[in-house]
């Protein structure tokens, strides 16, 4: 209950608290709905749910400014919702429909939004890390003061390219926050079994990159750490590492029975550390919101999610001609270099 105690005197307004509650709840309900649609056969392939980890992206997005970038792995629905992408477009991509962010051609793991500066959605573990460093390289080259959040998991932290990226980001002082979402399981292999030296945030030290460990079940702590990291990057001091300890309640993907951990372990996390319950209690205890206020938020979220599910079912499958489009670009994309 340490998190709850420390958050009892939040340095945030009730409105902000309610916003975080709303944003996290949207991710939770959206993911629950996605799981349900998967069970109905409306979503196919791999589908990696974000339930339990909501405070990570909501906290960091609260710290980010307009124009900051983000890139992540295949467990990406939460990141997209948190940065303001349309739930309808995300859900319709999950069902492989024309109205999806990638017109149904990317699926759960591959969505992008230039408008929201979301650069994927990458399916190969760790591949987004040098890409994130490259986004930051572009910002530095273009001499704006934007920062890139490069998310990866504790599993990806054992990929060589992560350290190739640390090295380059450090020697070139790139404005990138490496966010390690440590949910403690690399698919079915616990961190203890896969990772030598349990403090991943310290792995930046040999490269001269400061890092810190953050309680990822507490959205306020995540936000605070995010603000510090961003300030470091914006000041031109180079990269920063946040290892955010979190927990996913569901399996690695929808087809993972999660036999590698006990039901009790999951249950304990849900009961004692749930990031949404944490904020909910804070709102009620601090009399910032009534049960009715929260119920109305719940209802609002439920409506948004139901609408996205309806849209995702009703949006048609892509036209067969779409098979042959978007393989080659005929003109340069309108990138940040152009529109800023």
């Amino acid at each position: 209950m340490a998190a709850r105690k420390s958050a009892a005197k939040p340095n945030v307004s009730p409105e902000e608290l309610k916003q975080y509650y709303r944003d996290m709840l949207l991710i939770r309900r959206f993911e629950e709905k996605a799981g349900q649609l998967y069970g109905m056969g409306l979503i196919g392939g791999f589908c990696h749910l974000y339930i339990g980890q909501e405070a990570v992206v909501v906290g960091l997005e609260a710290a980010a400014d307009e124009g900051d970038k983000r890139v992540t792995s295949y467990r990406d629905h939460g990141h997209m919702l948190a940065c303001g992408m349309d739930p309808d477009g995300v859900m319709a991509e999950l069902t492989g429909r024309e109205g999806g962010y990638s017109k149904g051609k990317g699926g759960s793991m591959h969505m992008f939004s230039r408008e929201k500066h979301f650069y994927g959605g990458h399916g190969i573990v760790g591949a987004q890390v040098p890409i994130g460093a490259g986004l930051a390289f572009a910002d530095k080259y273009l001499e704006n003061d934007r920062v890139t959040f490069t998310y990866f998991g504790d599993g990806a932290a054992n990929q060589g390219q992560v350290y190739e990226s640390f090295n380059m980001a450090s020697i070139w002082s790139l404005p990138v926050v490496f966010v390690i979402e440590n949910n403690q399981y690399a698919m079915g292999t616990s961190q203890k079994r896969s990772t030598s030296g349990q403090d991943i945030y310290e792995r930046g030290a040999p490269f001269g990159i400061p890092g810190e460990l953050v309680d990822g079940m507490d959205v306020l702590k995540v936000k605070e750490a995010g603000e510090k990291a961003i300030a470091h990057c914006r000041a031109g001091k180079g990269p920063y590492i946040l290892e955010i300890k979190t927990y996913r309640y569901r399996g690695h993907s929808m087809s993972d029975p999660a036999k590698y951990r006990t039901r009790e372990e999951v249950q304990k996390m849900r009961e004692e550390r749930d990031p949404i319950e944490n904020i909910r209690t804070m709102l009620l205890d601090g009399k910032h919101a009534s049960e009715d206020d929260l119920k109305s938020i719940d209802k609002e979220i439920k409506d948004i999610v139901n609408k996205s599910a309806d849209f995702a079912r009703e949006s048609p499958e892509p036209d067969l001609d779409q098979l042959w489009t978007d393989i080659y670009a005929s003109e340069l994309p309108q990138g940040d270099a152009v529109d800023s």
């Binding site: 650069y119 040098p130 994130g132 986004l135 572009a138 080259y141 190739e164 990138g335 152009v338």
Partner: peptide, 11 residues
């Protein structure tokens, strides 16, 4: 990979 990211970023 860094080059890919830089290309995504407008370079």
């Amino acid at each position: 990979g860094l080059g890919v990211g830089a290309a995504f970023g407008g370079l």
